[in-house]
Amino acid sequence: MIIGVYGTIGAGKTTISNKIKKLKFKVINADLIAKEVINYRDIQSQLKKTFPEAFVNDNFDRRRLRKAISNNETKMNKLNSIVWPEIKNQISLLIQTNSGNIVIDAALLPELELPVDKYIRVKSNLLTTLFRVKKRDKIPFKETFSIYKQQKQRIKYYNLDNEIIIVNDFWTKKISYKQLHKKIFK
């Protein structure tokens, strides 16, 4: 079985994915793959042409790239067109070479069009999201809000029949493994 966990920045996708991992699933984290892919020579070359502001003395600066795309949907789409095909290839290879249950953790996962049996959308309120990302990534609220807003806008157009929604906020009860197992395998 392949489960896809998606949602906006800071929603708690990795927390839920790690809980699913304990149900004997292998976790594929698209963010970790993206960090590798972004360092590929051909990807770096395309990024340098498209986002010169993300480079300092020929060295790629992820924070500068994040800042460049945070307020510009066109630039975010351009970045996605450069890196997503290779991210999809890497995830597809991992799916092919791993037997058993897999969970894929990716913000806009449905757009990768991978063979997912069941989607889990992780939602969180804006305040929780802003504080989680501030604590984790140390980026300004304004930048996080911009990315959150762009992702939320895209997600609202997904129409998935095989979807479970989990609200993962500070103020909600933590989901138990039993509850998670029931939601996944019902």
Rank of each mutant, 00 (worst) to 15 (best):
V167W: 10
V27S: 04
L112C: 05
G4L: 03
K19C: 10
K134Y: 10
I165E: 10
S124C: 12
N57V: 09
K49S: 13
S17H: 10
K135W: 04
I3W: 01
Y148R: 00
K48L: 06
F185A: 09
K24W: 05
F131K: 06
L79G: 03
N89S: 12
R62W: 02
I120D: 01
A54E: 01
I38S: 05
W171M: 15
M1D: 15
K183A: 03
L94W: 08
A34S: 09
D161W: 07
L47K: 02
Y119T: 11
I82V: 08
P110N: 04
I104Y: 11
N18E: 12
K88P: 05
E73F: 13
D117G: 09
I165N: 13
P115N: 10
S17C: 15
Y148M: 04
I184Y: 04
T129A: 14
E53N: 11
K19S: 12
P140C: 14
P85N: 13
I16K: 00
K123M: 14
I3Y: 02
I38T: 11
F131D: 13
N71V: 09
Q90C: 09
L126E: 10
N98D: 14
A34C: 14
A68W: 05
R41C: 07
R41H: 09
L180N: 05
E73R: 15
E163Q: 07
I184M: 08
I155P: 00
T15F: 15
N18R: 10
A54G: 02
K178G: 10
L23H: 14
K142Y: 14
L47V: 06
K48D: 06
D31N: 12
Q96S: 08
V116E: 00
N77T: 03
N18S: 07
K174A: 13
V116L: 12
N59W: 00
K24P: 12
D169H: 06
F51H: 02
I95Q: 05
K173G: 12
K174C: 08
K134L: 06
L23Y: 07
Q44H: 13
I38Q: 03
Y119I: 07
L94V: 11
K173E: 11
D169R: 01
T14G: 12
K19D: 07
T15R: 08
K21M: 15
P115G: 07
G100L: 11
N77H: 09
V83H: 08
I91E: 03
T50Y: 12
K123T: 05
K13A: 04
L23T: 11
K183P: 02
V37M: 13
T97N: 06
L94A: 10
L94C: 04
P140D: 06
D58W: 06
D58A: 10
L180P: 00
I87N: 00
L180Q: 03
L65D: 08
T97L: 15
Q44G: 04
A54K: 00
K21Y: 03
G100W: 13
E143Q: 11
K118H: 07
K67C: 02
N168M: 10
K138H: 13
I16E: 02
V133F: 04
T172H: 14
K138F: 14
K67V: 05
A30E: 01
I28Q: 01
N59E: 15
I16S: 02
G4C: 13
F60G: 00
